[in-house]
Simulated scan of single mutants.
Amino acid sequence: MKFTHAKKQPKNNSHRRVPLLVGGELFAAVFFILLVWLLFIVNPSQKSQVKIGSTYMTMNNNFFPVLNEQIANYVEDHHGKLYNRDPALIVDKQVEEIDSFIAKGVNAIIINPVDGNSDKILAALHRAKNKGIKIVMVDSQMKSDRDADCVILSDNYKAGQLCARHLLTHKKHAKILLLEHYSAYSANNRIQGFTDTIKQAPNRKKFQIVKKINTYGQSEITLPLVEKALKQKPKFDTIMALNDQAAVGALAAIDEAKIKRKINVYSVDGSENMKKLLGVNPNAIATSAQSPINLGKASVKTAYKLIAGKQVKHKIILPVYLITNNNINNYNALGWQ
């Protein structure tokens, strides 16, 4: 008998492919979710991005843009977000800026206050503090540091002292005009260091403060005010300016008034504009140099430490040194130190 072999039917694997397909899709989905999670962990821009607000009394002073540049670079390198604002010496505007930082949910505010005596600014900073925002004051301070986590300053008092010591060493007498900014604590400390040193000198009676002018540390405000003072009595032969901007305005006023007598001008900052005049303009004598670069770096690093919950000193003081018309060749006259 001949047996006929039935044809083998192809195996139907559809019942096996379905589970394999489902398993593959599941694996892909899990892999995708894991990848997104890893990216979230690794990429700080996606994971609780650090946000910082910075506001200075004015950006119309090269000192503050240079200081802020250090902060901006650090924040960018750490994938954070920086909001920089310019109150242009207006208290109410700076208060609005602080409130906008609060609304944006910043982690820290770096502030150079427009007015160290302003209750409005203090109240705004208190509102920020109550929201858990870290407060770093830079280059100046408020009448109360209750809400400041850290205050970072140049040694402003010593800056004034250095100018006074140079004057006392190189002159036997002087009639002095002070160029001030009454609402800025840093400016007041510089002038205080200068006047205290004069008052403590053995020959202090020969060094007289004959006039004071509130210049807000601005060249364009200082120039006409000093021009006016030059036409009035009492006469002065020395100027102590709170900063280089005021000093440059004073030097321009002396030149425009075509004053024949020498008027020695001292200041604080160590800016490029003032350094270029030392050794060139006979009236430009010295500037106590500070470093906006170091102030900016110290401020932003401190802010990040505070955000991370680390302990920092409540006050950090950075050193200053005197650049004169005699030693200017030892320093770089281009840019800031």
Rank of each mutant, 00 (worst) to 15 (best):
I285N: 03
S291L: 04
D237T: 08
I293S: 06
S299W: 03
Q245V: 00
S288T: 06
E227N: 09
K235F: 04
A257S: 14
A257K: 13
K228S: 15
L295F: 03
T287H: 01
A298P: 00
K231R: 13
D244Y: 12
L277M: 15
K301T: 13
D255N: 11
A241E: 09
A250W: 01
D244Q: 06
D237R: 03
A289G: 06
A286S: 09
L242Q: 13
K262Q: 15
S267T: 05
N273K: 14
D255T: 12
E272A: 13
N281T: 11
P292K: 01
K228Y: 09
A289L: 01
G249S: 11
V300I: 15
Y266A: 07
A298R: 13
A298W: 04
D237A: 04
Q245D: 15
A247D: 08
E256I: 01
A286C: 08
A250M: 09
P292D: 07
I293H: 06
K262C: 02
P282Q: 00
T287S: 15
K276I: 01
M274T: 04
S271R: 02
Q290S: 14
L278F: 10
M240R: 03
V300E: 02
E256F: 08
I285S: 05
A246P: 02
A247M: 09
K235E: 14
A289I: 02
I254P: 07
M240W: 04
K276C: 00
A229T: 01
P292M: 07
A250D: 06
I263R: 08
G270E: 01
L295T: 01
D244F: 11
V248W: 09
D269V: 02
D269N: 12
V226F: 07
A250V: 00
A241T: 08
K276Q: 15
K301F: 03
N281L: 08
R261M: 04
L230F: 08
V268I: 11
I259T: 14
N283F: 08
A229E: 11
K235D: 13
P282I: 06
S291P: 00
A253Q: 12
A252H: 12
K235L: 06
N281E: 13
A246G: 12
V300T: 12
N283Q: 06
K262A: 10
I239C: 09
A247S: 10
D237V: 05
K301D: 14
Q232S: 13
K231P: 04
I293T: 08
S291Y: 05
A257D: 09
Q232E: 14
V265M: 10
A229I: 02
D237E: 05
G279Y: 09
G279L: 10
I263D: 13
Q290V: 10
K235G: 02
M274Q: 11
D237N: 15
K258W: 02
